[in-house]
Simulated scan of single mutants.
Amino acid sequence: MNKKLIINLSLALLLVLTFSVSSMAAEYTINAGIGLNDKSAQYESLEFFKELVEENSDGQIEVNLYHSSQLGDDREMMEALQMGVQEMTCPSTAPIAPFVNGFKVFDLPFLFPTHEAADYVLDGPVGQDLLKQLEDEGLVGLAFWENGYRQLTNSRNAVESPEDVEGLKVRTMENPMHLAAWREMGANPTPMAFGELFSAMQQGVVDGQENPWGTIYLQNFYEVQEYTTDTGHVYSPFVLMMSKKFYDKLPGDLQQVVRDAAQEAKHHNRRINREMNAAYLEDLKEVMTVTILTPEQKAAFQEAVQPVYEQFEDEIGAELIKDVQAQVEEFQAQQ
């Protein structure tokens, strides 16, 4: 066989392969971005979602995943969804509040006594109504996933009571309710970008911070923090959301594929997030002084922050706060 024939056959084969690949290419592409890294339960849950969507859509939808704020921070990605230049993200509720005011309710301290109580409210009429309100902002709320309970770390002393927090410089998000809660507990809250936090703790600019166990462990905060306490002062959900512009382009059967996958991945996310956080806590016990509060000790923190509810009642909406509290009480009565 001469060289020219071999080249022609090779080119023909290449064209056939190119056509075959292009003919199998997905009709729709979902670019999903998050802020956490690829070791997080959130990213693993997105991988689970990707598998479900691609399989159940028979390859009509392709899902590309981006972690570690590769596509921007939470607000930037939400705005990209509104413009239709990104398809999916999964922010915590705090950055959503400027878009839908009701999401501020989740920043109230000690709102949910247990994971299960949070599930009950988020999957019930109150939570689902908040997801529905996102549509007016060009966003489709698919499901509440989980970030988790925020816990306190510091480099000064063990914390067993609000008195032990007195004067601690605690890094927080730039969130009025979080700031108010820490002031009521006696701390000196200091808003700061997350990317600056490790060096700030290392240099003593702040004494401590508050985040879920997974973040504390995966970000190696134990290298610059000696003490941690299971304050569980705020339960933080994630919201899996999609661009309405993109969602509306999907045929009905593929919209259902996305919605079903979001629900399956929700249960997967909550399970592995809780398992991983429990494991991270055990790991942290090996490298930090960990204080597990008794119910009586935690009640002292809850009492200290009660003025925050009254302070932000008008801003959040008294009726919404009452609805959430009523749902929590309803759940507890069933146990």
Rank of each mutant, 00 (worst) to 15 (best):
K3P: 03
L5M: 12
N8Q: 08
L14V: 15
T18C: 10
E27L: 07
E27T: 06
T29E: 13
N31R: 12
A32H: 10
I34T: 03
D38P: 00
D38A: 03
Q42L: 09
E47T: 01
K50G: 05
E51M: 00
L52F: 09
E54L: 00
E55A: 01
S68V: 01
S68I: 02
E76V: 11
M77I: 04
M78R: 01
E79R: 00
A80T: 10
A80W: 14
M83W: 09
P95A: 02
A97L: 06
V105Q: 04
L111M: 10
F112H: 07
D119M: 10
V121P: 02
L122N: 07
L122G: 03
L122T: 09
V126L: 04
L130A: 00
D136A: 06
G141W: 07
E146P: 01
Y149Q: 12
R150K: 13
L152T: 05
L152I: 11
V159L: 02
V159C: 00
P162N: 05
G167R: 09
P176N: 15
P191K: 11
A193Q: 11
F194N: 05
F198I: 12
F198D: 06
S199I: 15
V205Y: 15
V206L: 04
G208M: 13
W213A: 02
L218A: 11
N220L: 08
Q225L: 13
T229H: 06
G232N: 14
F246L: 05
K249T: 15
P251N: 07
Q255T: 11
Q255H: 07
H268K: 13
R270N: 09
R271P: 08
Y280L: 01
V287A: 04
V290D: 08
P295K: 06
P295C: 11
A300D: 10
Q306N: 04
P307I: 08
P307C: 04
V308I: 12
Y309H: 09
Q311T: 14
I316P: 00
E319I: 13
I321T: 08
I321P: 00
K322N: 15
K322L: 08
A326T: 15
E329Q: 14
Q334E: 12
